[in-house]
């Protein structure tokens, strides 16, 4: 599946060879199908314009993903300027419900996860992960996508999302605990009954 040839193929074949992968990449991050489709189109058009500058140092797929990655970050930057209050200003009831009110200790412990590393090789796991990303509130999903999926550090993330570092840490804490809950319920606990 993965394209490792270093010579760029003809532009008209890019859509067939890489369209699905670019779409999945964009969709996991921006979550709205229409926005993901637009990003795939923008990426392929940009690739067409800069085609002659593709040096063949990486595979064609890697080159296209690098273009898409920048488009995704631009998308979030635009979105941040349009959005209103960051969600980190509001309490998150789902996170509060994980802990006892008086002591702030776990109401129930996180479960032990069996063989997490083999999940990474299972395409059904990636569908579950994408669904769990889909379930996050928008700002949490953006913060998580830019940090863990794009590798931005806190300073860059603050600039892209136009928020303070303490906002960012609140968003990331909530995103991680929600994803943890979701993966546990939908994958790790579910796997116990249907191995």
């Amino acid at each position: 599946m993965h394209d490792d040839s270093h010579a760029p193929s003809e532009p008209h074949s890019w859509l067939d060879r890489h369209g699905d992968a670019l779409y999945r990449y964009a969709l996991m991050r921006v979550r709205e199908p229409a926005a993901a489709e637009d990003l795939v189109q923008e990426t392929l058009l940009a690739a067409l314009r800069t085609h002659s500058r593709f040096a063949g140092e990486s595979s064609e797929r890697t080159w296209l993903i690098a273009i898409l990655k920048n488009k995704v970050i631009d998308h979030f930057r635009r979105y941040a300027h349009e959005a209103t209050l960051p969600e980190s200003e509001d309490p998150d009831a789902l996170i509060d419900a994980l802990f006892e009110k008086s002591s702030d200790h776990w109401l129930s412990f996180p479960n032990a996860w069996q063989n997490p590393d083999t999940a990474l090789e299972n395409s059904r796991f990636w569908q579950v992960f994408a669904d769990c990303m889909q379930g996050l509130p928008a700002r949490q999903a953006q913060a998580f996508a830019l940090t863990e999926l794009e590798g931005l550090d806190t300073d860059d993330l603050c600039k892209v999302l136009s928020v303070t570092s303490s906002n960012v840490w609140v968003l990331l804490h909530r995103a991680r605990l929600r994803l943890r809950e979701c993966l546990e319920q939908r994958w790790f606990d579910a796997g116990k009954e249907n191995p």
């Binding site: 993965h2 369209g19 699905d20 992968a21 670019l22 779409y23 999945r24 990449y25 969709l27 996991m28 199908p33 489709e37 795939v40 797929r61 890697t62 993903i65 990474l120 395409s123 990636w126 569908q127 994408a130 999926l149 794009e150 590798g151």
Partner: peptide, 13 residues
């Protein structure tokens, strides 16, 4: 794992 690839089976509509 998903920084440089896009695992899964979802297809571009």
């Amino acid at each position: 794992r998903v920084r440089e690839e896009a695992p899964g089976e979802t297809r571009l509509p």
